[in-house]
Write a protein that binds this DNA or RNA. Structure first.
Length: 478
RNA sequence: CGGGGUGUGGCGAAGUUUGGUAUCGCGCUUGGUUCGGGACCAAGAGGCCAUGGGUUCAAGUCCCGUCACUCCGACCA
């Protein structure tokens, strides 16, 4: 009653301390907990169920675009990693090495995969011989290891879970098309399933993936105004093909090198969900991936018939939704708070008064609006409310992003904005690395992407004043 | 990897300044009463105070090291 809007007292409010709010939500919603291994987390059942839903949704999108799943080794011999120069330079500082097998020192050390381009390439060199073998459209679900200095649950851990697609194509055009196609798959997934609006674009050379010719990205804006790269798609050209000697006989009977792509989305996206939709009462989950879409809280279970009615309702709804019935002897109020903290989209309350009137109470997580719903039309109501909730989450996130997106035309404005207002900053750029570096130094921002949707703000670079080539999104990033 | 902070039952903390054998709240167990926004009563269980050394008759407390977590930078999905 002291604070009507914040019913869950155990979570630090966002305004007070966003970083603490984040870890509170991760812990209180039982998504993950720290493990005994430095920088690695235990993803708890609720977090795992969320990841499985994300995975199944994405996987079906990959299948629909013609991809097949494979499983590669988790070790990479040093010589294999060394084959592509830019790639190894990019990853060398953060790979973990296996030097012993049992008691014996290995002749060649093995790295624990930080990403699997080299393994895929090694395999592709064996299985690709003719243009008829192309395209190869492979994906793998796995975990990878990067020896990070600083870690945070989901956002940056030493081991993280992801999928990595690796494809080979006959022509550059086809590969570029694939790179763009998969970026769109990610963007659609974020918007349709996670209710997270994203900006699609291309990374600058400074920010692109080690070994890639070009890197595409989807960038999302978190509640605190920091950007989160939510998925990437890379076009490699034929650089790795040359390095790994992958060749095929083309249609004209000549030896050719295939063109490659890779693309990935990681368990970091769970961090994006938390920081896009969460509020001071905890997690808010988009219905498409929520482990529990509807929780049923029976009221006054000691009264005759209540438990039975709740069970009956649960069985009925399980046919169409992910439903949980909580029959524990915690108080109703405790349960309300608990499932709000865990972000369950809809709550149904059913008590003696409802049973009399053949209704139940339906409460939405995002705005906590209550309505009385007839049991006769419950399925329809739930479907409609889940849809409305998804749309509201998306719209709210989009509105916030727009509110927190600023446009600047010179260096003073850039510094003033970056210092005082968290969010995306749109500004023109000449294309020079020096300007990117200077902006990082004087304003603390990095280029997030060169958006596909370009606007002409001015015709000069925000930093040096020379003629501008592109409009970029800038910001501080996770 | 540089700078700061923190480590005490499962969780959150007090106790550290000024050494004297560990306290509180929540949670947990059992029984009972409750039940429409984190219920109440009663009785219990649970900690060699992160870790390794050192000082001392005596260390949660003082000294040195290590580890983990965390915040701010640098690096990165």
């Amino acid at each position: 009653m002291a604070d009507q809007n914040k019913l869950v007292k155990e979570i630090t409010s966002m305004d007070e301390d966003f970083a603490k709010w984040y870890t509170d939500v991760v812990k209180k919603a039982e998504l993950a907990s720290y493990s005994g291994v430095r920088g690695c987390m235990v993803i708890r059942p609720y977090g795992t169920a969320l990841w499985e839903n994300i995975r199944n949704d994405l996987d079906s999108r990959f299948k629909a675009t013609g991809h097949e799943n494979v499983m590669m080794p988790m070790f990479i011999p040093e010589s294999l990693l060394q084959k592509e120069k830019d790639h190894v330079e990019g990853f060398a500082p953060e790979v973990a090495w296996v030097t012993h097998g049992g008691e014996e020192k290995l002749q060649e050390r093995l790295c624990v995969r930080p990403t699997s381009e080299t393994l895929f390439c090694d395999h592709y060199s064996e299985v690709i011989h003719s243009y008829k073998d192309l395209p190869k459209l492979y994906n793998q679900w796995c975990s990878v290891v990067r020896w990070e200095k600083t870690t945070r649950p989901f956002l940056r851990t030493m081991e993280f879970f992801w999928q990595e697609g690796h494809t080979m194509h006959e022509t550059a055009e086809e590969a570029i098309e694939e790179t763009e196609r998969m970026l769109n798959v990610y963007a659609d997934f974020c918007e349709q399933s996670l209710a997270i609006p994203v900006v699609k674009g291309k990374k600058t050379d400074k920010e692109k993936f080690a070994g890639a010719e070009s890197t595409y990205t989807i960038e999302a804006l978190m509640h605190d105004g920091k950007a989160l790269q939510s998925g990437t798609s890379h076009y490699f050209g034929d650089g790795f093909s040359h390095a790994f000697n992958i060749t095929f006989t083309g249609r004209e009977n000549t030896i050719q090198y295939p063109h490659q792509t890779s693309w990935g989305m990681s368990s970091r996206i769970i961090g994006a969900i938390i920081m896009t939709h969460g509020d001071d009462n905890g997690l808010v989950l988009p219905p498409a991936v929520a482990p529990v879409q509807v929780v049923i809280v029976p009221i006054a279970t000691h009264k005759p018939g209540v438990t039975e009615k709740a069970q009956e309702l649960c069985e009925r709804l399980q046919k169409g939704f992910r439903v949980k019935l909580d029959l524990s002897d915690n108080s109703a109020g405790w349960k309300f708070a608990e499932y709000e903290m865990k972000g369950v989209p809809l709550r149904l309350e059913i008590g003696p008064k409802d049973i009399e009137k053949n209704q139940c109470v339906l409460v939405r997580r995002d705005n906590r609006e209550k309505s009385f719903v007839s049991l006769d039309s419950l399925e329809e109501e739930i479907t409609a409310h889940l849809k409305a909730l998804h749309d509201a989450l998306y719209q709210k996130a989009l509105d916030r992003r727009e509110e927190m997106t600023y446009t600047v035309s010179n260096l003073d404005e850039m510094i003033e904005n970056a210092t005082n207002r968290p969010g995306f900053i749109k500004a023109m750029w000449c294309g020079e690395l020096a300007c990117e570096e200077k902006l990082k130094e004087v304003a603390g921002v990095t280029s997030r992407c060169i958006p596909f949707e370009q606007e002409a703000i001015t015709d000069t670079c925000v930093c040096c004043g020379k003629p501008a080539k592109h409009m970029l999104y800038w910001g501080k990033a996770y």
